[in-house]
């Protein structure tokens, strides 16, 4: 009994209990009101996708020691460039590539500022956010039309499973990519030499350096890849979800992604769980508004942001950020 209790109180225990409670709740709600449950879960996945992609960018950067507060900017510019390329060429493949490339370039800018110029990384990220807001606001013209957006693509018989099928296996390409990326990055981070080295340069870059690991090159690489992932998050918004661009359309998602990353304790799978939670909060917000509950909609609309504050404030001091993040690495 003692040991069972101890397991239940442990980290894995709590995760498992939480997961089971969720599954039971979902099943109960599904049996009461299948349509609404499915709508909420669908919208949860849709809202969580840009968050998890943004958070993965955060994980890539911060694990290697670079604070990226410019995820919002990567996303916004990625969204804009993806949309514009879609308008110009009508090719969704090129559009997705453009949004990733744009994110990557922003990553390069951040890496250059923080590694080469040794600028304070929070300032560097803020520069990117303001740059993205300014550029997209200036170049955006109203009334452009595109030839379409990324369609949902049911995964054969998997999509026919009740509840799970339509929620998980009937999505657009970027949503699938996001879920696959979560597991791929998690695997790479904890099971490959690249991952071990990435975690080492985020914790103690001098140690890695003395063992012949090229800290600077690895940081550039990781921030570039992270930037591409955040760009993809932007692409999701304009190419798969909304289908068009609006000024400042990321609307703080890049910052929520940071909260998601912290809540997930800088691990991809943890961040996914957190992203789903935030996606769920957003989905509930819409659902509550539909249900005509008598709360001013502004309050309901606050839900995801309040959750962000609660999560970040509640977790500060209890999570373990990479020790060297934000610090300039000076090679001897």
């Amino acid at each position: 009994m003692e040991s069972v209790w101890r397991f239940l109180k442990s980290k894995q225990g709590i995760t498992i209990i939480g997961f089971l409670v969720l599954v039971i709740l979902v099943v109960v709600f599904y049996s009461i009101s299948p349509n609404q449950t499915q709508a909420v879960l669908n919208s949860m996945i849709r809202h969580s996708t840009p968050l998890i992609l943004g958070a993965l960018c955060g994980v890539m950067c911060e694990r290697s020691g670079i604070i990226n507060i410019g995820i919002e900017g990567h996303m916004l510019l990625g969204a804009f460039m993806g949309y514009m390329v879609n308008v110009w060429t009508g090719s969704l493949v090129l559009a997705v590539a453009a949004s990733m490339l744009t994110g990557s370039l922003m990553g390069l800018l951040l890496a250059y500022m923080s590694i080469k110029l040794k600028l304070d990384q929070v300032i560097g990220g803020t520069v990117i956010n303001i740059l993205a807001l300014g550029l997209t606001g200036y170049f955006y013209t109203v009334g452009l039309t595109t030839s379409g957006k990324i369609m949902t693509f049911p995964l054969g018989p998997l999509a026919d499973i009740p509840l799970i099928g339509p929620v998980l296996f009937n999505n657009g390409f970027i949503t699938y990519a996001a879920i696959v990326l979560v597991f791929v990055l998690h695997f790479f981070l904890y099971r490959t030499p690249w991952g071990l080295r990435t975690r080492a340069i985020g914790e103690h870059p001098e140690a890695a350096d003395t063992l012949g690991i090229n800290v600077i090159r690895m940081r550039y690489m990781n921030v570039l890849i992270g930037g591409a992932i955040a760009g993809l998050a932007g692409g999701f918004l304009t190419l798969e979800s909304v289908g068009s661009f609006e000024r400042a359309m990321t609307n703080g998602r890049g910052f929520i992604a940071l909260a998601v990353m912290i809540f997930g304790n800088w691990s991809p799978i943890g961040a996914w769980g957190a992203a789903l939670l935030f996606g769920f909060a957003t989905a509930m917000q819409t659902q509550l508004q539909f249900m005509g509950i008598d709360i001013p909609h502004q309050f309901v609309g606050m839900l995801p942001y309040v959750l962000t504050i609660v999560v970040v404030a509640g977790l500060v001091g209890r999570t373990h950020p990479p020790a060297a993040e934000g610090k300039v690495f000076e090679k001897e």
Binding site: R199, A200, E203, H204, A207, A208, T210, L211, H320, A323
Partner: peptide, 9 residues
């Protein structure tokens, strides 16, 4: 002199 070890590894 100052150990080059990653504390959380």
């Amino acid at each position: 002199q100052h150990f080059m070890l990653v504390p959380v590894f």
